[in-house]
Design a protein around this nucleic acid. Structure first.
Lengths: 234, 234
DNA sequence: GGCTGTGTTAATGTTTGGTTAATACATTAA
DNA sequence: TTAATGTATTAACCAAACATTAACACAGCC
């Protein structure tokens, strides 16, 4: 039996932003430890065991990448998420200034971060476990139940998914915002990677795109020669 | 398991400047040994093991180049950075012939030096490690995600990079502020070094320059007959 | 048998990526 | 200064990857 609350180490030099993000993650049932610079971050990392680290890239004295390398030396498995774009921070801060209880309802980039965290945790746990525990996914306004193979959109009849449609969408959801390599889907779902299975997969991508059209913020992007990427904008 | 703090040998005859630089590097988590002339520098080099040497070129009794040659005889791998007061090109070329990883003109921006050190360390470590774990780079205001092949500029739509564009920019980023030899990119990315692949590479350099135009502080400079150099001013 | 759900293959068009060509400009060595 | 070599940039071209619709195959089922 695994422990329920996952522990996150958050290293962020911007005190204001760090506190907001910590609150946000805590509200989403994570246990968050905040460090305000790279050195403190590494100290805290050594003292305790975490399930995931979120590192700001732009920090004085020790930047996120340098810290990441030190952490990697100690632990090759732990998932790392980098906070890179400044635009995101500005957006969140802007959202916060509008009103304290406003920033949570507002769908800003931290929702994307949350999704990423969940996806990464899920992936990591499904790498060790044989069976996949999670079968429910929120994809923008859609909700996927991969056990019942239902894709629901608020106010409409649930769409029944075929086994292959279901598996493919689930795999994409597992890799939200990240690259889902072509080869992965082909070996996992089609159990073979050749010209024809690849064509077949394209057909399924087209089908999924049709289903997902209802929410313009949900998209399946192609990364030429590499694979696909499920993105949820806004 | 690798040791955490990297050791730097700093050889600088200007006591004042040397002390400042040592402090600055120490604050950035490097262990710095300061030698105040070439002879002392070589003595200290023999007594201990360092990860990198920073050598002033203009020193009494034994200049940086002479010292560099002695160091090279003892250790063919160790990265060398020259500090030179002159902007003269012969100095730069002389430095490269001795086997410099980089040279810097004095006075210089300490942030640039720090970036160079990090870039060099990163390269050295990725030469020994088989897989390349790092795929995110900050290039001035740009941010490169080489896994998703995205180049983002704050406030604008991310630019999708083609595989070759991506590889080339990544390689340049790995050598920030330093010479990225033509031959290296050709053998690594094109897997062949001939007239045509070389022309092709030039085409890609032109494409990258176009993308990077948005930030006037980012530039790809050509070093005639040698290769290219990605610079981030200020 | 006809019907329905599922998945593959075919056919066709579009997009993307990469090389080569053509031309102009820059640097270097003699 | 000139000739040789190296670099910059645009455009033309071809190939591979991808997108989409439609036709086809084959189950399971009333």
């Amino acid at each position: 039996m695994e422990k329920e609350t996952k522990k996150i180490l958050l290293v962020e030099d911007d005190q204001n932003f760090g506190a907001i993000l910590k609150d946000y993650l805590s509200l989403n049932d994570f246990e968050v430890t905040l460090a305000k610079n790279g050195m403190e971050g590494f100290e805290k990392f050594k003292k305790d065991t975490y399930d995931l680290c979120i590192l700001d890239v732009m920090m004085p004295y020790k930047d996120g990448y340098t810290l990441a390398k030190e952490i990697r030396e100690k632990n090759k498995e732990i998932p790392l998420i980098f906070l890179t774009a400044k635009t995101m921070k500005e957006d969140v801060l802007k959202g916060y200034k509008v009103g304290a209880d406003d920033y949570l309802n507002k769908p800003f980039d931290s929702e994307v971060l949350l999704m990423k965290i969940k996806a990464i945790m899920q992936r990591k746990s499904s790498e060790t476990k044989a069976e996949n525990t999670q079968f429910e996914f929120q994809i923008g306004k859609f909700h996927l139940n991969s056990k019942l193979r239902f894709l629901t959109f608020p106010g409409e009849e649930p769409i029944k998914l075929s086994p292959k449609e279901n598996e493919l969408l689930k795999l994409l959801a597992l890799y939200v915002e990240d690259l889902m390599p072509r080869e992965l889907a082909l070996t996992k779902i089609w159990r073979d990677d050749n010209y024809f299975t690849s064509r077949s997969m394209d057909v399924y991508i087209a089908k999924l795109r049709k289903y997902l059209k209802e929410d313009p913020n949900v998209e399946i992007l192609n990364i030429h020669g590499e694979g696909f990427r499920l993105v949820v904008k806004k």
